[in-house]
Structure formats: C-alpha cells, structure tokens
Simulated assay, not measured.
Amino acid sequence: MPHKIFIDGAAGTTGLEIAERLAPRSEFSLITLDDDRRKDAGARREALNEADVAILCLPDDAAREAVELIDPASGTRVIDASSAHRTTEGWCYGFPELVGTERVADARRVSNPGCYPTGFLGLIAPLVRAGLLPADWPYTVNAVSGYSGGGKALVERYESGEAPGFRAYGYDLAHKHLPEMKAHAGLDHPVLFAPAVVPVYRGMIVEVPLHLGAMPNDPHADALRGALAEFYEGSQVVKVRTDPAQKELLLESGAEPDDSMELFVFGNEGGWNVRLVARLDNLGKGASGAAVQNLNLLCGLPETAGLKLGSAQ
C-alpha cells in the first residue's frame, strides 16, 4: 500500500520539485489540495492528519503553525524544509550522512538542513569530530548560490533582467543559517558567513578557507582530505574528490538537477593553507533532494531511490 504524502506549500520552488520527483513513484500517493483550499486551515488540517508523512515547504512561522495543526494521535510524521526546527530539541536534523540513517529512519520529526549549512557541515563537522580542526576556531564561510534559492521574488528579478549579475547579501551578520552551522558542527563560536547569489538558476559552492599552520595541532591538507574520504566512504550521495589538480570549479547556467554533493580539499605545497570546498545543487542535496532522501528513510525504502546522483558517480 503506498505511503500517503502531503506537501504543505507545494506551490513553492522546493515543493514543486519534491512533487515532481514523487509523482512517478508507485511507493507514494500524493494528497493534493485545489488552489482555493491550499490556504484553508481546515483543509490543511485534514490533509496533514491524513498523511503518513507531511513535508512542510513553508516560511518558518507557517511551518510552526502546520505542526500545531497535527494531532499527535494521527501518527503523521513530518519533514520540515524550513529553518523553523533545525536546532529545536526533539527534532532530528535530517542530514543522514552526519547523524546516521537509522536515527532519521526512526524519527517522528525531521528538520531538513539548509542549503548553505549542508555544504559547510559536510566539510567541517567530520573534521571537528575527528579532532583535526578545533571547535573554538573562528571559521569563515564564503558561498555563492543559484538564484532559485531566494524565492519567487528573487527568481522574478533575475529572470526579468532586473537583478544584477552578482548579488552579495547578509551584511547584518545575522543570517538565519548561523545557529544551525554552529550547533551541528559543534563549534564554540558562530561562523562569519558571506553569502552571495550568481546568475545561474541552480547550483552552489560553499568554501571554508583555513590557515592550518596557525592552528594548535598544525593539521595538514592531506590529513583533512583523507579523513573526509574515510568518513564518507561508501556514501552514494557525498563524494570526496581526492584529485586536487582542478584549477577551477564551475556553476553552469543550464545545469540539470543533482542530489549529490562533491567535497574538495585544495592545499598549498606545504599543506598549511587549505580551501575546503563543497559543490552541490541548492535545490537538490540543499533542499528537495535531501527531503526525498529523508522521506525514503522514513518510509523504509532504499535511501537513494528516486534521487539524481550525477556528480556522485
């Protein structure tokens, strides 16, 4: 019998991509609401409580309200794609490679990671856990994303030609991803986060530059690369590229959806300067693809079923 899935917020970019991925799969039956009922609280309450799994693709406040509409006795499990519950006690952080697939599979409430934090945590969390990088270091994150991550208004600005080619933002130094990055990497201090948007629809590069020679234990670039390769060994989704010879990384304007993530460690000749880089699809492993991966686990299905894993091959 197929699992009943309700996507609350199915008209947004993330919700649309999830629906497209699930529609051809016989393991799922999608509960849908007509346009005139999508914002009706009664209709949403009924759909949320009818579902085996509800996927929330909503603004933070609306996501919190949706959770309140769910009767605990209904048995509905939740994947929240907003940032509302990413550091909330009692919620499982939906990054299976970091928290473990069994923990996600057993969870009642799963918070989908943010796109930028997925790249940052994929690089930093395993190395802090291994003791190769210090938890009390002042980490800096430089990142660029495709404009699809900015919501409908930004998409319209770029596609109408109103937006500039390069858009840097987050200058209030209070981006909503900061608590998530600090908490799930196990850091003592918030990171210094410098995000930007570039004129491609999808794709993301997240970079953490480090002066390893200034760190107390003087780690080496090769040690970091080896530790990441060992941590993700066997993963079909996250791949560590061990050949550091690439001279550039590209985000292509016509890129196809991709649910994998590539990690790179670029070190200088002495190994004491390093640029840790994650390349991923902000709508794939950074959003919709991660939700589908978590949904597979919740439903007892193969973790990568229905995922598009081009760069992980």
Rank of each mutant, 00 (worst) to 15 (best):
R25T: 04
E46G: 05
A81R: 04
A54R: 07
D80F: 15
T14P: 06
P72D: 02
D36L: 14
T14G: 00
E97A: 15
L69K: 06
A47L: 12
H85A: 04
D40A: 08
T88Q: 15
D34C: 00
A81H: 04
A23M: 09
D60N: 13
V67G: 05
R25S: 11
P96I: 02
E20L: 11
I55W: 04
A23V: 11
V99C: 07
L16T: 15
T88V: 04
Y93W: 15
A81I: 05
E97H: 10
A81K: 10
E17N: 08
S83R: 06
L56T: 05
I31Y: 02
I55Q: 01
E68K: 14
A47I: 09
E89K: 14
A19Q: 06
C57Y: 03
V99M: 09
E68R: 15
E68I: 11
A54I: 02
D80R: 06
H85Q: 13
P96D: 03
D35G: 14
P59L: 15
I70Q: 07
E27D: 15
A47R: 01
G90Y: 14
G75K: 06
G75Q: 12
E46P: 01
S29E: 13
T76C: 11
R45F: 10
F95K: 02
R21G: 02
V99W: 04
V99I: 14
R77T: 14
L69I: 11
